[in-house]
Computed example of a mutant assay.
Amino acid sequence: MSWSDRFVGIPHAEFGRTRTGSDCWGLACIIYREELGITLADYLGEYASPGDLGEISALIDHGRASPLWVAVPETPIAFDIALFRRGRWSSHIGIVIRHGLMIHMREEDCAKAERYDTGPWRHRFAGHYRHVSRAVERPVQIVSQARR
């Protein structure tokens, strides 16, 4: 059993941010709050329509430039955000369960676990991002000096 099983089946709802219904970002808000104790910005009122992929993409680009999110060049870990393009717009996200597997909101359906390293999501993948509070710090190497 995975932590993600508790979120599978949450119904889709435009502008939703609760377990009674959410969109893809709403699902991230729910998971981060319940699993990590992190409150993400809800972005409600910052885009007019879920169909306006340009506005959503602009919000995502603003988020990527924010100091709150760090690009993950190496292998992603659980709770990283996987970003996807729809057409020319980066406008959909999933939450990594493990490398290649995400939970995300299927429009007009519900939250589902799905592979993104194969199949239809593979060619849409645009990068992984980690919340700064979860960024892995490089280990500090302590060099002891011998006494003379």
Results as ranks from 00 to 15, higher is better:
74 E>Y: 11
8 V>R: 11
137 E>L: 14
26 G>N: 09
77 I>D: 07
40 L>D: 12
143 V>P: 05
135 A>P: 02
23 D>A: 09
138 R>Y: 04
85 R>M: 05
115 R>V: 00
52 D>S: 02
7 F>Q: 00
129 Y>A: 05
90 S>H: 10
77 I>P: 01
103 I>R: 01
59 L>N: 13
93 I>L: 15
88 R>V: 01
52 D>N: 13
83 L>E: 00
101 L>K: 06
116 Y>P: 04
12 H>D: 03
34 E>M: 14
71 A>I: 01
7 F>W: 06
95 I>Y: 11
12 H>P: 01
138 R>Q: 12
133 S>A: 15
133 S>R: 15
39 T>Q: 12
63 G>P: 00
119 G>L: 09
60 I>Y: 13
53 L>N: 06
86 R>L: 10
135 A>D: 04
136 V>H: 08
89 W>R: 11
132 V>R: 15
20 T>K: 13
52 D>H: 12
88 R>S: 10
63 G>S: 14
121 W>C: 09
33 R>C: 03
117 D>K: 12
88 R>G: 14
95 I>F: 11
105 M>F: 08
20 T>C: 01
64 R>W: 01
37 G>R: 11
70 V>S: 11
16 G>W: 03
105 M>E: 09
120 P>F: 02
34 E>I: 02
4 S>Y: 12
24 C>G: 05
8 V>K: 10
17 R>M: 02
16 G>V: 02
90 S>N: 14
65 A>F: 07
43 Y>V: 03
116 Y>R: 06
49 S>K: 10
40 L>T: 07
129 Y>M: 15
88 R>Y: 08
143 V>W: 06
124 R>I: 01
96 V>L: 07
102 M>F: 02
108 E>R: 14
